[in-house]
Simulated assay, not measured.
Amino acid sequence: MSKSQSRSTGGIDIDQLRVPEDDGRNESLTRDEIFEMLSNRRRRFVIQYLKNEEEAGTLSDLAEHVAAWENDSTVPELSASERKTVYSSLQQFHLPKMDDAGIVEFDRRAGVVELTDAASELDIYLEIVDQYDIPWSFYYMGISAIGAILVGLASLGVQPFAAIPPAGWTVFLLGTFGVSSVSHFLLSRGMRLESAETPAEVDDV
């Protein structure tokens, strides 16, 4: 297979993610197509499992692990209906869709699934936001707004904010941004699909 090529020097450009060109499929996935692929938790679990295995997997094993994650259970504890539901869904819908997109190679007859070079080279991670949390973008916007207000009040001599000079507020805000950035980095690493044997989302099921 041909390897994905990025137009950027910092990593994969997901607007031009290349997929194998020898099977007549589209040469690239658009941003919308990638997000559509990853919008479904079951498909994210498929990628997680295959990344952990680092080799082709069988449909039956894949379905069992995905079902266990979805039901917050273990493979031995799964019921026959839970296994069958996920197996049928993967076989009939999700894997063919991922195969058409070039993210996996699915041999329906042999029941074998394997990630393509396109998927393995994409460092996929998702910022998962709980219903009681706020996105990081809003968090940083909030800090910026509050910082501007504090520095402005200190500059105007408004008490008690003027007790700390604008330079002091600036240092405080820089420290806040530094700590927040490190926390954001560590949490984002924890959300990477290949960073753990069990998806981080399982804890939220």
Rank of each mutant, 00 (worst) to 15 (best):
S4T: 08
G11E: 08
L17H: 00
D23C: 14
R25T: 12
E27A: 12
S28T: 08
L29P: 00
L29G: 01
R31A: 11
E33D: 15
F35R: 12
F35M: 11
S39E: 06
R42F: 06
R43L: 10
Q48V: 13
Y49R: 10
T58I: 06
H65E: 04
V66N: 00
A68G: 00
T74V: 06
V75W: 01
P76N: 01
L78A: 01
A80P: 02
S81W: 05
E82N: 07
K84T: 14
V86P: 00
V86S: 02
Y87G: 06
L90W: 01
L90C: 02
Q91W: 08
Q92W: 11
F93H: 13
A101R: 09
F106L: 03
R108C: 09
G111S: 05
E114M: 08
T116V: 03
D117T: 09
A118Y: 00
E121L: 14
L122N: 04
L122K: 02
Y125C: 11
Y125V: 14
L126M: 15
L126F: 14
I128R: 10
V129I: 15
V129E: 11
Q131M: 03
S137K: 12
F138S: 15
M141H: 09
G147V: 08
I149P: 04
G157T: 05
Q159K: 04
G168H: 11
G168A: 15
L174F: 15
G175H: 08
G175D: 11
F177R: 12
G178K: 08
V179P: 05
V179A: 15
L186N: 13
R189F: 10
G190D: 12
G190H: 10
E197F: 06
T198D: 06
A200R: 02
E201H: 13
D203K: 10
